[in-house]
Simulated scan of single mutants.
Amino acid sequence: MTAISTQHAEQVEKLYLENRTWLSIFIQRRLGCPDDTADLIHDTYMRILTCGYLPQKHESKRFLTHIAKGLLIDSYRRQQVKKAYEQYLQQLPEQYVPSAEEHVLMLESLVSIDALLHRLPDKVREALLLRQLDNLSYKEIAKRLNVSVSSVEKYVAKALQACMADIIQD
């Protein structure tokens, strides 16, 4: 983790004090939950603290909005993954339901995979999913995506490289 200078921390604190009310209202309107709103505000400023960039005063609301919207999207995706996983678990026989610890670990893994897939370009993601989940051949994927077989090969290779890079980072 990178060290945060005192000056940068003070500037972020000033940014927080100047914008906390409207940012809270902005997020609250989209979430409807005060606890989740507080968490998202915290995450927004943590991103700013750790990224090392501070916007000019006239750009601060736009910058904060951009970060908050990204975090809202991430939160929504996490909720969708959680909901889908919980629906899947409801269909399992009792003896196959994971323990609480396994449940948390699986949910973390699924959220990580979802985030990784959403960082990939659309055709790269689609090619990987068609190959891995639907077990389609490169030729079938090329036909479905309306691209050449060599493009599909590149897409799948790029997706697998991204997956490996993500594994190595962890």
Rank of each mutant, 00 (worst) to 15 (best):
residue 111 V to P: 00
residue 104 V to P: 03
residue 121 P to S: 08
residue 110 L to K: 01
residue 122 D to G: 09
residue 126 E to T: 02
residue 109 S to D: 04
residue 127 A to D: 03
residue 131 R to V: 12
residue 123 K to V: 05
residue 129 L to C: 10
residue 101 E to Y: 08
residue 105 L to K: 14
residue 128 L to W: 00
residue 125 R to M: 13
residue 119 R to Q: 13
residue 125 R to K: 13
residue 119 R to S: 11
residue 118 H to G: 04
residue 117 L to Q: 01
residue 113 I to C: 13
residue 109 S to G: 08
residue 127 A to N: 10
residue 117 L to G: 02
residue 117 L to N: 00
residue 113 I to E: 12
residue 106 M to N: 10
residue 106 M to K: 13
residue 131 R to S: 09
residue 124 V to T: 04
residue 122 D to H: 09
residue 105 L to V: 10
residue 111 V to L: 00
residue 106 M to E: 10
residue 126 E to G: 06
residue 103 H to K: 07
residue 131 R to A: 07
residue 110 L to V: 15
residue 111 V to H: 09
residue 125 R to L: 01
residue 111 V to M: 08
residue 122 D to V: 07
residue 130 L to D: 00
residue 125 R to A: 14
residue 119 R to M: 12
residue 102 E to L: 14
residue 107 L to F: 04
residue 115 A to V: 08
residue 129 L to S: 00
residue 129 L to Y: 04
residue 125 R to W: 10
residue 101 E to M: 10
residue 110 L to M: 14
residue 117 L to R: 02
residue 105 L to P: 08
residue 127 A to C: 07
residue 126 E to Y: 01
residue 126 E to L: 03
residue 105 L to E: 15
residue 103 H to W: 11
residue 113 I to H: 15
residue 107 L to T: 00
residue 113 I to R: 13
residue 128 L to C: 03
residue 131 R to W: 05
residue 121 P to H: 00
residue 109 S to W: 09
residue 121 P to D: 08
residue 117 L to K: 05
residue 127 A to M: 09
residue 115 A to P: 06
residue 102 E to R: 15
residue 101 E to Q: 14
residue 112 S to E: 15
residue 108 E to G: 10
residue 125 R to V: 14
residue 120 L to G: 07
residue 115 A to S: 14
residue 113 I to S: 14
residue 106 M to A: 05
residue 110 L to I: 05
residue 121 P to C: 11
residue 112 S to T: 10
residue 104 V to S: 09
residue 110 L to H: 13
residue 128 L to Q: 00
residue 114 D to C: 08
residue 131 R to Q: 12
residue 116 L to F: 12
residue 129 L to W: 02
residue 104 V to M: 08
residue 122 D to T: 11
residue 112 S to M: 10
residue 125 R to I: 08
residue 104 V to I: 12
residue 108 E to L: 09
residue 127 A to F: 02
residue 114 D to E: 07
residue 102 E to Y: 12
residue 123 K to L: 05
residue 124 V to W: 01
residue 118 H to Q: 02
residue 103 H to V: 03
residue 124 V to G: 03
residue 113 I to G: 09
residue 121 P to Y: 01
residue 131 R to P: 06
residue 128 L to M: 04
residue 102 E to S: 14
